[in-house]
Design a protein around this nucleic acid. Structure first.
Length: 482
RNA sequence: GGGGGUGUAGCUCAGUCGGUAGAGCAGCGGCCUUUUAAGCCGUUGGUCGUGGGUUCGAGUCCCACCGCCCUCACCA
């Protein structure tokens, strides 16, 4: 198939041939014994300007002033200026003159400074490691087009250092979470991503098909029911960090695939998980803020402990203005809010009013506890009050960050809750996970369970307004641009 | 799915009342051995998202469609 090259590509492809004539491989080989550019920079010592250093990176700025070329190299630790002089390079000078923005080079030289004080590697030899045949975006503004940034994240990463920083942060956060839990004796496990029954949450699943078994499978919407099977099996403290898939709307807070951390601890309850969550997040905040305050969406969030802990009913009365039990008033409020309440159950109306009146008010970390039991089919009821479930959600900046409960371990109630849930669901999803009920019949210790979305937590910790800014390759429709 | 916004050179962006398509960066040619978004001189580059329509004439007005962003709805 004949390919069409634009002006830039054509010119750079011509340079490939020139480079080969000069004996330079435009798509070079391994380049060993390098140090990162920021380390090289930090090694500068005015007492010793003869240190030999070796590094590699991409050309992000290029100033050719004739017989001397200044280049700013970038690797994922930072930028470093190098100077290439005709006087020092001999045969390689011809190659140096063919270097372009975007090329990747390895170099060796003496670490010194220019007369204006810029730390600079005076290059004694270099190797072209990869010729870029497409030009990078504009050097000052970088890549701004949001669509292109998501579709061509590889360009976004090397042109916009703050994007690289966000994803390095994300990686560090996930690592810290693993360390935090592992240090407390939790064991990381992996449970099925492909499930024959999509359980553990109420979301629309993605469907896929196994050819040999000739059966449909669901990409999981939650790992919960498998992790609790492990509690039955005798694993006492487990967690899993992995993807969930939900076939629902996309927004600044929702991506169809997202990363979830779920944690289960035998012999605990939701209050234990509340303490665990508070400590975990504070540990993460502490690693990036001296005063336990972080900016998010233009607001300063105060993470200093202790965090607010309020019941669902308290918050309802406080922000809606009437007790949740007074269903007549609640329904009136719902109508004011434009919620079509007529055909809905009381509990659903109450919850919708709660979601639209209360959640957005919870800016600083707030645990909302003791939800109406009807909303919580997998949760143990409060002792002495079967209408209330031992469940909490954590809100920060109006965003649901975590969801946790004392796990229901009574197989009879569980089966009953499943049956209630099945009513009113579509046929494809209406399958009872009877094996899970069987597991409970063998006996699951009382336990606390906790789930939190890694992506949203990373948003908070990195002050990212959209979930797409913390997911390397957010889902996009196939585009025609690229 | 509804509402609002947006799409112009490789990138970042202007484009007035409907009247020959613009700048900066990048590129190409030239000068330059200490530049800092290097500078100076010259210069190439366009299916104005796509398809229709109105008009003597459309980047601009109208209709439809496509992508993206925001928002609402949906969302245990």
């Amino acid at each position: 198939m004949e390919e069409k090259y634009n002006e830039y590509e054509q010119i750079r492809r011509e340079k490939l041939a020139k480079l080969r004539e000069l004996g330079a491989d435009p798509f070079g080989q391994r380049f060993d014994n390098t140090e990162s550019l920021s380390v090289i920079k930090s090694r500068y010592n005015p007492e010793n300007e003869e240190q030999t250093v070796r590094g590699a990176g991409r050309i992000v700025l290029h100033r050719d002033i004739g017989k001397l070329i200044f280049i700013t190299l970038r690797d994922w630790t930072g930028n470093l200026q190098i100077g290439l002089s005709k006087q020092w390079l001999g045969d390689q000078w011809e190659v140096a003159k063919l270097l372009d923005l975007g090329d990747i080079v390895g170099m060796e030289g003496k670490l010194g400074r220019t007369k204006t004080g810029e730390i600079t590697v005076w290059v004694t030899s270099f190797k072209l490691l990869c010729k870029a045949t497409l030009p990078p975006p504009e050097k000052w503004h970088g890549l701004q087009d949001v669509e292109l940034r998501y579709r061509q994240r590889y360009v976004d990463l090397f042109t916009n250092p703050e994007v690289m920083a966000t994803f390095r942060d994300r990686s560090a956060i996930v690592q810290s979470i693993r360390e935090f839990l592992t240090r407390r004796g939790f064991q990381e496990v992996e449970t099925p991503m492909m499930q024959s029954i999509a359980g553990g949450a109420a979301a629309k699943p993605f469907i896929t098909h196994h050819n040999t078994l000739d059966m449909d499978l669901y990409l999981r919407i939650a790992p919960e029911l498998y992790l609790k099977r492990l509690l039955v099996g005798g694993m006492e403290k487990v967690f899993e960090v992995n993807r969930n898939f939900r076939n629902e709307g996309i927004s600044t807070r929702h991506n169809p695939e997202f990363t979830m951390c779920e944690v289960y601890q035998a012999y605990a309850d939701y209050r234990v998980m509340m303490d665990l969550m508070e400590e975990l997040v504070c540990t993460l905040v502490q690693q990036r803020s001296q005063d336990m305050k972080l900016e998010f969406n233009g607001k300063t969030i105060e993470y200093r402990q202790p965090w607010a802990r309020k019941t669902y009913a308290e918050l309802f009365a406080e922000h809606v203005g009437c007790p949740m039990e007074q269903i007549g008033e609640v329904r009136q409020k719902a109508r004011q809010l434009g919620i079509g309440e007529a055909t809905k159950d009381d509990s659903v109306v109450v919850n919708e009013v709660f979601e639209s009146c209360v959640e957005e008010k919870l800016i600083h970390p707030t645990f909302v506890l003791d939800y109406p039991a009807i909303l919580c089919p997998l949760t143990k009821r409060k002792t002495g009050n079967p209408a209330i479930a031992e469940r909490f959600e954590l809100f920060v900046s109006g965003m649901e960050i975590a969801n946790a409960y004392t796990e229901l371990n009574d197989p009879e109630i569980q089966e009953q809750n499943f049956r209630v849930q099945l009513r009113g669901q579509e046929e494809t999803e209406a399958v009872m996970d009877s094996d899970f009920v069987t597991a409970l019949k063998y006996g699951m210790p009382p336990a606390g369970g906790l789930g939190f979305g890694i992506d949203r937590l990373v948003m908070l910790l990195t002050n990212s307004a959209s979930i797409r800014d913390v997911i390397l390759f957010p889902l996009m429709r196939p585009g025609s641009h690229v």
